[in-house]
Design a protein around this nucleic acid. Sequence first.
DNA 1: CTAGAAGTTGACGTCGCGTCAAGCGCAAGT
DNA 2: ACTTGCGCTTGACGCGACGTCAACTTCTAG
Lengths: 257, 257
Amino acid sequence: MSTTHLREGDSLDIARAARLSGVSSRTLRHYDSIGLLTPAWTGHDGRRHYENEQLLRLQHILVLRELGASLDRIREIVDADDPAITMAHLRDHLAGLAAERDRYARLAATVASTIDSLEKGTTMTTDQIFDGFEHTKYEPEARERWGDDAVDTSNERWASLGKDGQQRHLDAHREIVEALGAAIRVGFAPDSDELQEIVAKHYAWVSLFWTPTAETYRGLTQMYVDDERFRRNYDEVAPGAAALLRDAADVWAERNL
Amino acid sequence: MSTTHLREGDSLDIARAARLSGVSSRTLRHYDSIGLLTPAWTGHDGRRHYENEQLLRLQHILVLRELGASLDRIREIVDADDPAITMAHLRDHLAGLAAERDRYARLAATVASTIDSLEKGTTMTTDQIFDGFEHTKYEPEARERWGDDAVDTSNERWASLGKDGQQRHLDAHREIVEALGAAIRVGFAPDSDELQEIVAKHYAWVSLFWTPTAETYRGLTQMYVDDERFRRNYDEVAPGAAALLRDAADVWAERNL
DNA sequence: CTAGAAGTTGACGTCGCGTCAAGCGCAAGT
DNA sequence: ACTTGCGCTTGACGCGACGTCAACTTCTAG
């Protein structure tokens, strides 16, 4: 058999080439414009025509595109048409994919646990922190401390969560408290990077519902120390945790708020 | 205490605001230009000045940005400042993150197994397929079939892989063969979507080293049938597998090459 | 001969900024 | 008083892989 057996009629216009290979004609034009896939020939009227050779190259391109490679990388691979180079690029590409995968996995886990923490039920720490703003005897004090609007808003926000939401919010908080406990055992200082990071998380945790100012944030952490019902939740993991959080929060608030 | 206690001196210029919050001044300008974060006030000379309120909003923005949310989504969340809306957006966002994570996981797995298949060692199917192009007695035949250049290139490509690479290439191939076997047991026709998909994978597998034309691809699959050493590898999983692959490849080549 | 189908090029939009480029205001040094 | 220079300003392009108009030309069928 001859290696080439193309009759004139074997060439396809852009639409047929696109349908055959499952891409849009725009994509073919794009590939042409960036020099990734040049049509076999172009009519006097500018219309693009594709033949077997181009369809083969396109197949090769699409195989690699399905692997998520960039068009630049694809170009280098198909132009080289060399397995050693293919391997090198695939290796690079895999590293990138794995990194992206891990990045999204981390993000998803973080968001999931955030949602979890917001959805879970109403238990101890929760009751204490948010009930502190609520209708009970602490409310007048809270209103005095943070102003009426803040208390109302906080109540509404908390109420808008389900029992579920409230429970899980706790879990995120528990992580923070346990990190605090670990910091105490290791002996980190309030202005150490480690503690400042914990405070940042604590602030972020609080911020999901309410955006404290430097003043109110300091006030909140001070209340953790002053009020025995709050303090117990922090100190139960390690004595002095509430005070350490307050000290670290003072530094953090000054630096960041 | 008063709720506002800002003195004139409390406002920060863009550089200090940027350093405090850990973003670039360009980012702050960007957030201003898209209306996500407007400075507290702007001097007669156009310089931006930020105060506590803006820094707080920025903190909220950055918390959400770390979760990978888009600026549009972030705007809706911080503008609403409502936990119910926050939850709804976080939920949407989580779905997107999980989808991306899974997508990259699939891509990474595919590429990894491709690399694996290219790196693994030289065994049976491998030996037979690629040794078919090699120095042994089959080489003259291969040269006749596909031309000298194709044979040389194939030899070089295969040689450029390690023993490892050659072995794993096999595994990918084995998957294809087993899919073929399953198709036979179920009784799919050569032109069925299922078989066409298998052929597509087979073609992609071959294409990673060599880009067959319709003619050479048909020739290759025909050889799988004709040559007992090749046929055995296909038929061992299910009798008639080689012939079925050839028939399906004929259809596929016509449609796609 | 004309309408319609299908092709063409060109340009903008996406997303979140990084990175020039050109110009202005203010404070310190000569 | 004048220059220097820093730090700010706005405006614009670039990235990646096309989707999506818009405006125009050409081919084909009636």
